[in-house]
C-alpha cells in the first residue's frame, strides 16, 4: 500500500544527511540531480555506508543485486549484457522504464560499468520510495490494519507497537520485472 506517512522530501533530506555524513560534504552541495560518482566522488565503500545508513533510518532492506542481474536470472544469459559487457537494447528499454528521466544519457551499447555514474540522488529517492510503498496492508506481527508514524521515518503498528516489516529490495525488483514482462513482453 502507498506509504502516506513518509514524504519524498523527507526521504531526500535523510539521503542528504547520510551522504553528507559519509562523504563529509556540506548538505547544500547535494542536489536531486547530483551523481554520487561524478559530482560527489563517492567510492564503493561509501556506497555501502550510505545504503546501510538508509536501511537503519527507514527500517528497510535495500536491493543487494543490480536490476540487470535479476534480468539475466529471470530471462536468460545475455538478455541484459552482451559478451563484451555492453548493455543490450532490451536492457536499456527496461532501465528507461525503471529510472525514467533520471538517466537521460542511458543508451544501448554503453559499458555496464558506466551505469553507476548515471545514478542520481533522485533515482535513489525513488528506489527507497518503492520499498516504502510496499508497506503491507496488515501488521505481520499481530494482523492489525492500523499503522502510525510519529517521526516521519519509521512506521509502527498502532495495535502492537512493532515496526512495519517491508519486503526487501531484491524481491520487489523481481516482482516489478514480472509485471513489466507481462505488460510489455520485452524479453
Amino acid at each position: 500500500m502507498k506509504n502516506e506517512f513518509i514524504t519524498d522530501e523527507r526521504i531526500f533530506q535523510e539521503l542528504k544527511k547520510a551522504i553528507a555524513e559519509t562523504l563529509r560534504v556540506d548538505e547544500d552541495v547535494i542536489r536531486r540531480d547530483s551523481s554520487l560518482v561524478n559530482d560527489l566522488d563517492a567510492e564503493s565503500l561509501d556506497f555501502l555506508d550510505i545504503n546501510y545508513r538508509l536501511e537503519q533510518v527507514f527500517g528497510i532492506k535495500m536491493a543487494r543485486h543490480f536490476v540487470l542481474e535479476h534480468v539475466e536470472e529471470m530471462f536468460g544469459e545475455g538478455s541484459a549484457v552482451n559478451e563484451d559487457g555492453l548493455l543490450t537494447e532490451k536492457a536499456v528499454e527496461l532501465l528507461k522504464i525503471r529510472f525514467g528521466d533520471q538517466m537521460p544519457r542511458l543508451e544501448a551499447g554503453m559499458d555496464m560499468d558506466e551505469v553507476p555514474a548515471l545514478i542520481t540522488i533522485g533515482s535513489l529517492v525513488e528506489g527507497i520510495r518503492d520499498i516504502l510503498d510496499a508497506l503491507p496492508e496488515k501488521c505481520t506481527h499481530c494482523g492489525a490494519a492500523q499503522w502510525t508514524c510519529e517521526d516521519g521515518l519509521r512506521v509502527k503498528c498502532a495495535s502492537c507497537g512493532e515496526y512495519a516489516v517491508y519486503p526487501n529490495g531484491d524481491d520487489l525488483i523481481q516482482e516489478w520485472l514480472k509485471k513489466i514482462q507481462e505488460e510489455r513482453s520485452i524479453f
Binding site: A63, L68, V115
Partner: peptide
Amino acid sequence: GLRAGASGFLS
C-alpha cells in the same frame, strides 16, 4: 566491468 554501484549495492 561489473561496477553496478548504488542500485544493487552489493553486486
